[in-house]
Design a protein around this nucleic acid. Structure first.
Length: 782
RNA sequence: GGACGCAUAGCUCAGUUGGCUAGAGCACUUCGUUUACACCGAAGGGGUCCAAGGUUCGAGUCCUUGUGCGUCCACCA
């Protein structure tokens, strides 16, 4: 065995070994039961990898390694999510370009470049920390395979009538210049003003309204009051005159108007918020669209035409003030919906988009949640809350460049939609004509492609199909789908998890995966979210360089599922202490062991039975915890066994027997079993050091290429009664008593003492043991 | 406004069907180089388990209410 374990050299050695020997390669021919993982494909646009990533991927990995040892044929692929808006935004920022001022081809090319770089960054880090994925099975959401899957999904849902194209007011981002979905919205608290503005009635009396959006005043289509509000009873049905634009709008009533809010008189525009859009639908209101997709006001805004919303707001306020129409302004803080990718306040614009119908199947989506096992269980509630709060169907089209195209053309003459055939997928309709020569409706021969691309979640929501269809065999596909496990972070329950459930339900009337494990966030030392903006983290690569991958992984064992975990250099140090201790304990043990000690002796002493019994308990609990994804608890049990039971006690107990002229065979056989079990049971957490010890000594007997292919330990049969255990524990108490005596008298523990009178009640049969371990010549009882 | 989570030693946290004389690691004090390891070992100090009520022979653990922190969702003229 090595004299010293230099992790930087050895970890690298084992990385190469695993890679060259394809240790983690999935074998579709295997007769073992399959365990498939729906690995989260990270956004390659994230160029700031931090502990959060390490934490969540390591945590899933603990389970995966356990399953592999527990007898499953593990399918652990890796994906990269590199299409869609996240990547586009990343490229826009990095190169300071705007979608508007670049060509589609140039832009896509840049995205593809960045995609490559991003994937490489991730791959390096995953390798560094020893993530045991099968690198021969990877996907990227922009590759042909994924495009084909996404387009097939579109066709299937369209044919099933679940996708509809319609024109309606919907969420629009004026920065990204695309429609977005409800799940893409985020809350942002902003300081603003509540503006009180005088409209006029038909007789030129003042009508006071309150609004936070004065810039939309020219888009006003109606005033609303509560039907029960006596102040405005006579006004209902009459006309009001809008200031600045001077157009007339009706005064209408609706129960939803709160008489106590502002003046009780509400301005409805096209469309300031969801309420406006709702009233537009219910009351069949006129449309006065004032806002263009680029966020500028159009001619309807008169003198303010061409201004951006924000500028227009200031200009209009100034004008209202000047005309004495603005009565007062109250400072308020209110919450607005912003686009999560860019932080721009979301506007409502009427556009034509594709939607997947989800509002009609809320009940089904809720019942799907019951068919999956959630770890931790309470995370299911987040999904339920989200489904219940859905207000819009899922808008899947984006007016962007870098994404999966819709397999759709339109007839130039009559607008008839032409779908691609399944056999020609993946297809880029901008590069290829449809397979038909003329429109079936109007016989026109000219077609134009759909230029929109799909929402990025259209693809990632298919991840279980994408990975299972990497195999040709239908039989293999069926065994891989639904996946066994979906590991993911909690903040994408309403997106990735939700959308995957939708897809699976519509396509196959199935759940996409059986078990879900939700990880928490990585936080900094103070408990703050790690973010690039705050710069509150050290790059993980640096930490790994300093302490090693095993140590880094050890930190990740610290939080249970769903819990946030603080970064703590101390915990990482503890990890490296453990690695060191494992190496030293092994070095010590192996200096006495040979491969002939592999069969457990039948001449066991009390301490032997005690340690084996304790080991059994550890195996039992660790297995139970790993089976229920409680890796953190499993690790606690193993730590306790290894440090307190094995190193602090058993190894000390057994030293006199090992250092004897003829080393004790029974002790050696016990040591063999205990050490082997310890490295196996630590292997999912600390894959490097455990592999080192395994390869050095145990491999010959176990005959597997890697400890990670060896079997998870099972309890051993030992002949021991509870009374024996309790009796021996008394003897350990006695040992503690003598240790205290030596400590109090400033004696070294190795110091031989002539006689000692025990206070602890110990069975006489253990006296020899105590005398031997504590170097006491004459032991007596009080 | 609704939902969920958290609150235990100076710090970070265990404590899973109520039995706790409440634990671990770090930090702190004292001691020990002992033929695996000083990245070690031994011994020790340190807690009205957020508050108030309740159930019970017994509550850190269960129930109710409240407080503080965090997160998600909704409202948002």
């Amino acid at each position: 065995m090595l004299d010293k374990y230099i992790f930087s050299e050895r970890e690298d050695h084992w990385r190469k070994y695993w890679d060259e020997n394809e240790i983690y390669k999935f074998n579709p021919e295997s007769r073992k039961p399959f365990y498939s993982v729906d690995t989260p494909p990270p956004y390659v646009s994230a160029d700031h990898l931090h502990f959060g990533h390490i934490m969540s991927y390591s945590q899933a990995e603990f389970v995966v390694r356990y399953k592999r040892m527990a007898g499953f044929e593990v399918f652990y692929p890796m994906g990269f999510d590199d299409n869609g808006l996240p990547t586009e935004r990343f490229v826009e920022k990095k190169y300071n370009i705007n979608k508007k001022h670049t060509s589609r081809t140039d832009f896509v090319e840049k995205c593809l470049e960045e995609t490559k770089i991003g994937a490489e960054t991730y791959r390096k880090l995953w390798n560094l920390i020893g993530i045991s994925v099968d690198w021969s099975k990877t996907y990227s959401t922009i590759n042909e395979h994924c495009q084909k899957n996404s387009q097939w999904s579109f066709l299937d849902l369209y044919k099933k009538g679940k996708i509809i194209q319609r024109e309606e007011p919907g969420a629009w981002c004026t920065t990204c210049q695309t429609a977005i979905a409800q799940a893409d919205l985020e809350d942002d608290e902003v300081d603003s003003f509540m503006n009180y503005i005088n409209f006029k009635d038909e007789d030129s009396n003042n009508l006071l309204i309150a609004t936070t959006r004065p810039e939309l005043i020219s888009a006003c289509v109606a005033l609303f009051v509560n039907p029960g509000d006596t102040r405005y009873k006579d006004l209902i049905g009459k006309q009001a005159i809008v200031p600045i634009s001077n157009h007339k709008v009706p005064v209408l009533s609706d129960e939803s108007v709160d008489p106590d809010f502002g003046s009780g008189l509400m301005m409805v525009c096209t469309w300031g918020d969801n309420e406006d859009a709702k009233k537009y639908r219910i009351h069949n209101l006129e449309t006065r669209s004032i806002l263009e997709p680029d966020g500028k006001l159009n001619d309807l805004a008169g003198e303010f035409s061409g201004m951006k919303l924000k500028d227009a707001r200031e200009a209009i306020i100034a004008k209202l003030k000047e005309d004495n129409i603005l009565v007062k302004q109250d400072e308020i803080s209110h919450v607005v919906n912003v686009h999560e990718r860019c932080g721009t306040p979301v506007e409502l614009i009427k556009t034509k988009q594709f939607f997947i119908n989800i509002l009609d199947i809320k009940e089904d989506l809720l019942s799907q949640a019951e068919k999956m096992t959630w770890h931790p269980a309470h995370m299911k509630q987040r999904y339920i809350d989200w489904v219940k709060s859905l207000q819009w169907d899922w808008c899947i089209s984006r007016q962007r460049y870098y994404g999966v195209p819709f397999p759709v053309w339109y007839c130039k003459e009559c607008g008839e939609m032409i779908l691609a055939e399944e056999s020609e997928l993946p297809v880029d309709p901008t590069a290829k004509s449809p397979n038909i020569s003329k429109c079936s409706k109007c016989n026109s021969t000219e077609f134009e492609p759909e230029s929109d691309v799909m929402d990025t979640w259209m693809t990632s929501s298919l991840s279980p199909q994408i990975t299972s269809s990497l195999f040709e065999s239908k039989d293999v596909q069926e065994k891989l789908y639904p996946a066994s496990l979906r590991p993911q972070a909690f903040e994408i329950i309403r997106t990735w998890l939700f959308y995957t459930v939708v897809k699976s339900f519509y396509h196959f009337n199935s759940i996409p995966f059986k078990d879900i494990m939700i990880s928490g966030h990585g936080h900094d030392e103070k408990g703050q979210k790690i973010s690039k903006r705050l710069g509150n983290y050290v790059p993980p690569e640096q930490v790994i360089e300093k302490y090693g991958a095993d140590a880094m992984r050890y930190w990740a064992t610290g939080a249970n599922l769903g819990e946030n975990l603080r970064y703590s250099e101390n915990e990482i140090k503890n990890g490296s202490r453990l690695v060191n201790k494992l190496f030293n304990a092994s070095k010590f043990s192996l200096s006495f062991l040979s491969n002939e000690d592999k069969d457990l002796s039948s001449d066991l002493l009390a301490e032997d039975k005690w340690i084996l019994n304790s080991l059994n308990k550890t195996i039992r609990l660790a297995t139970k915890y790993m089976d229920t994804y409680q890796y953190s608890r499993a690790r606690n049990e193993i730590d306790d066994f290894f440090w307190s039971k094995l190193c602090d006690n058993y190894l000390e107990f057994v030293k006199p027997r090992l250092y004897a002229d003829e080393p004790d065979k029974a002790a050696k056989s016990v040591l063999y079993q205990v050490l082997l079990t310890v490295i196996k049971i630590y292997a999912p957490f600390l894959p490097f050091i455990t592999e080192e010890i395994y390869q050095d000594f145990f491999k010959v007997d176990i005959n597997e290429k890697s400890i990670h292919l060896s079997s998870w330990p099972k309890e051993m049969e030992i002949d021991i009664e509870l009374d024996d255990v309790l009796s021996f524990e008394k003897a350990i108490e006695a040992v503690t008593e003598i240790r205290r005596y030596k400590s109090d008298n400033k004696l070294s523990l190795a110091k031989e003492i002539d006689s000692y009178e025990l206070k602890t009640e110990v069975d006489k049969e253990h006296f020899d043991f105590i005398k031997r371990v504590m170097k006491v010549n004459n032991l007596s009882k009080k």
